[in-house]
Simulated scan of single mutants.
Amino acid sequence: MIVIAIVSAKGGVGKTTITANLGVGMAQRGYPVTIVDLDPQNAMQWHLGGLEQGERNGISLLTTTRAKLIDACYTSPYGVDFIPYGNGGEVQRMRFEQLLEQQEPWLRKKLQAAKLPANAIVLLDTPPGPSVYLKQAIHAADFLLVVVLADAASYSTLPEMEELISTYGHRSNSEVGSAYIVNQGSHRQLAQDVVALIADRLGERMVPYIVQESPQVEEALAFERPVLEYKPDNPAAQTIQKIIDWLLAGLKGGR
């Protein structure tokens, strides 16, 4: 099992969209994929479908001792299993966050207890910025993917994200690996300049493929479908496929 946390320092960078499409692309390659939505916005369901309107169940409701991840797992029409955050109300959210704060390895233990196949890939979608969810995700992850935009605001968050990775990603025997995806790139000069700055700062930790802006990505979300399934020939979809190949090759090689 490989656990990958998809994280960001700021909102609005397309992190959930990237997570959903990475999962679908990995499933297309034959991997058993489970996506866990750790964001209280509970938005992953709109990318993957498979939930009845008004469905409340999700990971945030698994606060009893014997609760298992499979108790909140759904099968998407697009080849992946996913666990929504759930909609149990504000009191339940606070109860869940208190549990996560008190039990740092909670998610890692739940994933281990799930007994997923050896070649399974788990993707963790997290809310932006520091949070108990980010701490849980990094603690459980084998690798981190940080999503940023090709803009000055994202570039300015790099030190903050690096500090979070350093603080939460420390292990007794190793450090969790990480790489950065630039999303919604464009041919505007400012965007190109920012990408050059990001590349100069990160070196090999910057994913060598940039996901370009595309209205079809937004169209896919409107239809509650991943763009890899909605418009697989779209340039953004093709770039995500390249990122998946790059990521899998690196993880197998010990990136």
Rank of each mutant, 00 (worst) to 15 (best):
L107V: 09
V148T: 14
I18L: 09
G88S: 11
L22K: 03
G254C: 02
E213K: 11
N234L: 07
V182C: 08
I165Y: 07
E219C: 06
L100P: 10
G23K: 00
V148C: 11
A140N: 08
L99N: 05
G23A: 07
Q192Y: 06
L22A: 11
Y155C: 05
R93M: 12
G253P: 04
S166L: 08
L99H: 02
P159M: 14
M44Q: 10
V217N: 02
Q103L: 12
I243L: 06
E204P: 01
R255T: 11
I181K: 11
I4R: 09
N57T: 13
Y209W: 13
Q184Y: 12
T16Q: 03
D151N: 11
E163D: 08
V194G: 10
G185M: 01
V91K: 05
D142N: 14
T17C: 11
I83A: 12
D37G: 04
I243M: 09
A43E: 08
E101Y: 00
H139A: 06
L134P: 06
S178G: 10
V227P: 12
G129I: 01
E229F: 01
A5S: 14
P40I: 02
Q92T: 14
L149N: 15
A5P: 12
A72E: 05
V176R: 00
A27C: 03
A222D: 12
E90A: 09
P159R: 14
L51W: 04
L145Y: 02
E219S: 11
I35M: 08
P127F: 00
I4L: 13
D245M: 03
Q102W: 05
P40W: 01
G177P: 05
I121F: 05
G254S: 06
L51V: 11
S76I: 04
D151P: 12
K68A: 15
L48E: 03
L99G: 08
D71Q: 13
Q41K: 03
V122R: 01
L149T: 11
A249S: 13
P127W: 00
P105M: 05
H139M: 02
I244H: 11
E55R: 01
M206T: 09
G25Y: 02
F96W: 12
Q102S: 13
G86F: 05
G79R: 01
A20D: 04
Q189E: 13
L51F: 08
T17E: 03
V194M: 06
P232F: 00
L190I: 15
E101I: 05
L38Q: 01
A150C: 12
L144N: 06
L100S: 09
I6N: 03
R188M: 09
Y230C: 00
S154P: 10
M26E: 14
Q216S: 07
R29K: 14
L221Q: 10
L62P: 00
A199N: 13
E101N: 11
R108W: 04
V176K: 00
G253N: 12
L190S: 13
V147E: 01
V227S: 10
E101Q: 07
D39S: 02
Q184K: 15
G253T: 12
Q98M: 13
G88D: 10
E163I: 00
R225C: 15
L111W: 01
G177E: 13
K15Q: 06
S214Y: 06
L247Y: 05
V182Y: 08
S166W: 02
G14P: 08
S76D: 12
L51I: 10
N57F: 04
S8H: 06
E175I: 04
E224G: 09
Q102I: 08
R95Y: 01
D245Q: 13
M161L: 14
G50V: 03
C73M: 15
E163Q: 11
